[in-house]
Nucleic acid binder design. Structure first.
Lengths: 224, 224
DNA sequence: GTCGCCGCAATGTTCCCGCAATCCGCCCAA
DNA sequence: TTGGGCGGATTGCGGGAACATTGCGGCGAC
């Protein structure tokens, strides 16, 4: 496991490094924000551990920049700033977990294991695909920053496809996302919504297109 | 967002439900272990919230059973048992996060958002053979990360062979995988699919090849 | 009332599938 | 050695299944 550690207190840093390396992790330790951001951008770490108080700013500040740059590496914040609003702010800035110092090393290791059990990278609350961006939080579709209204069903289809952009979304998963479990749907209503959504994405020149995957479902990807 | 809530204290349960539903979540509330396990097995929730102390046991105990059954839904534990070893044990049992009561509702919501930023709720099974990888969940074949389209029948053949890579798959097992049990197939249709698949694997330089095993079936292995 | 979304169904379109004809390579026996 | 038989390989084609598109009636929101 490759770990990037941003921590400016030498004692804390060496203690963490030692404990992690004892668990067969490879730790890259940096003390400055800028170094951390550059390392995270250029190397594929499995997880990033961030201290908030570092000499050149708030460690948390690199998270949105990394997410915007497409770096989805999980982030765990380690900090003495443990007030409720700090924790909430940290998580909503894009961190995956938030541990308040002092913490038990065993708990950090357990939380690392929990994060490593999950496959794939984290996705930011707001995703951008070329001219189009989507905010999963407030369900807003923006094209060139302009809000674009979508009917409810089409929005649900879009959201389900956007969550797994570039990968096939099985038909039953789409039906589940658009209707509930109980809701039984007949006919080709789902296809109709997909069709209308597809046309809108095209006419808005959103840079996204929806492809059918015969016998399986649908897939959305950037226009090639 | 669909949430399964296991909580036996009525006050806590209704407070949680109300707060979550105010955020547009759909909450299924159960008070017993057995109900929670059955619901989690049969319905695809986005996240499961578990209380540990419920009348018929420890809420955590269903997590390993769900994981073993292939249910990968994220789990957040909400409990009064907040000792260090409880937290570590909870995380290592398969929980994704662990919140100790009393907690601030806002923090739970933030941790929910953090978990929902992740791409899939279900751990999809992905296998890699050199340049090629296959995702059994969404049925995507990737070569060097690039999605490669396969017709449904060929995909089913590939899937059956990939499950037993390096070992012979008998003809009847392939037929069963590609068609149902009932479906009766005549002629050499299966061979035709194998042939087309083989050609594609070769022309894509996937690093995989399909060999016939005379009188038995077929076998897929890495190119030697 | 009116506007717009939804579910549904009819119709058009595309592409896959099953089939079969033919070819190839291996093995065996005369 | 050679011809025949057998199991598999390959490929073109017609039918049909899956998907696309669009119009309509209904109902709910405002």
């Amino acid at each position: 496991m490759r770990i990037l550690l941003l921590e400016d207190e030498p004692e804390m840093a060496s203690a963490l490094s030692a404990a992690l390396e004892a668990r067969d992790a490879v730790v890259d330790h940096v003390s400055m924000l800028a170094d951390a951001e550059e390392a995270a951008r250029s190397l594929p770490y499995d997880v990033i551990l961030l201290d908030r108080q570092v000499p050149d700013g708030d460690g948390l500040s690199i998270v949105p920049r990394l997410r915007a740059a497409g770096v989805g590496t999980p982030v765990i914040v380690l900090t003495a700033r443990g007030e409720l609003e700090d924790r909430i702010g940290g998580l909503d800035t894009g961190a995956d977990d938030y541990l308040v110092k002092p913490f038990a090393m065993e708990e950090l290791l357990a939380r690392l294991r929990a994060i490593m059990r999950r496959p794939g990278d984290v996705r930011s609350e707001v995703v951008s695909f070329g001219r189009l961006s989507y905010d999963f939080g407030c369900h807003d579709v923006l094209i060139d920053g302009e809000r674009c209204e979508l009917p409810r069903r089409e929005l649900l289809v879009f959201e389900a496809l956007a969550r797994r952009i570039g990968r096939t979304v099985p038909r039953h998963a789409l039906e589940e996302a658009v209707y509930g479990f109980a809701d039984d749907i007949q006919s080709n209503t789902l296809d109709a919504h997909v069709s209308r959504l597809r046309r809108k994405l095209a006419s808005l020149e959103s840079g996204l297109e929806i492809h059918p995957v015969r016998g399986i479902g649908y897939l959305m990807r950037r226009t090639s």
